[in-house]
Design a protein around this nucleic acid. Structure first.
Ligand SMILES: [Mn+2]
Ligand SMILES: [Mn+2]
Ligand SMILES: [Mn+2]
Ligand SMILES: [Mn+2]
Lengths: 218, 218
DNA sequence: CTTAAAATTTAGACAAGCCTAAAAAATAAA
DNA sequence: TTTATTTTTTAGGCTTGTCTAAATTTTAAG
């Protein structure tokens, strides 16, 4: 069995490997966990002892098969709970992450199996992130960052990269959400800022925004 | 903010005061928490420092107003989650306690408020225990242990005292549950064993059973 | 290739919660 | 009321997860 801290480190390492490739540095982990490098080292050594990561001093860490399976299961729980909170309890999409951070650590396979059924086996969480199935399989989805689109290209918003409350609220005030149709009207070469069209309104957005919106191009 | 361990101690002290009156002994707490008296003393001193119990060396502990309010809130969460698990996820009443022991520590007032609404503001949990309202008020209910009834008296089962899976399964196999009509057919003076009638069937039960079933007499 | 900077690990400490063993206080027995 | 027993507290230690400061290794610069 794994402690809450161990579970959180495994999840962090999973996300880091996903985003920046295999072999995660101590500093990257410490950063994501909002702790000190020395604390990260301690935990990395413990996780290596438990065979859930492979690790050599000074060379970074990678999840083993077992470690990945644990991490994915926590992510599955996190996302299912987020669906529950939004679909059943009427929370907004910017309000659920912190609560799901707690709920993801509840230990009961039966509970998750039944929750999944109750929710109708959802494929995506409220932020457009895929929900791993009970075997840990994550269906690969073809989605593209808005920042990669050129002038006049368009797509449907299928997810967000950042999912901080601040960013989600920014999107809310501009009526951008999962399912919104977005078209690039103008793109500034110098700073990658864009003018986009959502429904019948046009907005000016910075690179920081376009780099955090996933689209399915059409 | 209170740690998981602190919350569990507060809940234990609340239940002990409820069952055996104010001023709870160190041993009673250690016993309920399945720990050693020395550990209980450590925690008692910490809780006293935090002003959630009043305590004098060698004299036992009692919840302060603040401590009681925290304990009752945890119990409210526990019971609401049990309702959720049974009503929404189709768990059996003997399967929910352990999971609720985890869920009761999730910290979000908004979550509990919405869960309560989602469940339709239930008054009782699956074991017939009252659910405190958001102000911590527990509606007093008139219920009587089956063991207190005399021959030919009857009532409706409104709750169980014990709620271990073993006991609940015992009741299940005899089709006894919340709402069952129970009549005392025969009562043995010597050992308090009884013959009772449930629906059209008669059972022989020991004192241990009758002391753990709450009835509303009619 | 040697030095400077950055990244990582180690050493030593601390709080929370638990433990065992021993001391102290309260209670029961004689 | 003295002695024995039970209850409770204290003392000292251990594990988990964290920290700061110092040492070590790796990487980048000159
Ligand atoms: Mn989330
Ligand atoms: Mn999400
Ligand atoms: Mn329960
Ligand atoms: Mn219950």
């Amino acid at each position: 069995m794994f402690t809450l801290a161990e579970e959180n480190y495994l999840k962090a390492i999973f996300h880091l490997e996903n985003d920046y490739g295999t072999g995660v540095s101590t500093n990257a982990i410490a950063d994501k966990m909002d702790t000190r490098a020395s604390s990260a080292t301690d935990m990395i050594q413990k996780l290596a002892d438990k065979k859930v990561i492979s690790y050599q001093k000074y060379k970074g860490a990678s999840l083993t098969k077992k470690g990945k399976s644990i991490a994915v299961n926590i992510i599955r729980k996190h996302r299912l709970w987020e669906v529950f909170l939004v679909e059943k309890l009427d929370f907004q999409w910017d309000e659920v992450h912190e609560i799901a951070e707690q709920l993801e650590h509840i230990k009961s396979d039966e509970l998750i199996q039944r929750l999944d059924l109750f929710l109708g086996h959802p494929d995506f969480d409220p932020h457009g992130d895929p929900i791993p199935d009970k075997n840990g399989y994550i269906k690969p989805t073809e989605k593209k960052l808005l920042s990669k689109l050129k002038k006049n290209q368009q797509g449907i918003c299928v997810g967000v990269k950042e999912s901080s409350a601040k960013f989600l609220q920014y999107l809310d005030t501009r009526k951008i959400g999962i399912g919104s149709s977005i078209k690039v009207i103008e793109k500034e070469d110098f700073d990658q800022s864009m003018t986009i069209q959502v429904s019948n309104k046009q907005f000016f957005i910075t690179k920081q925004i376009s780099e955090n919106l996933y689209l399915k191009t059409i």
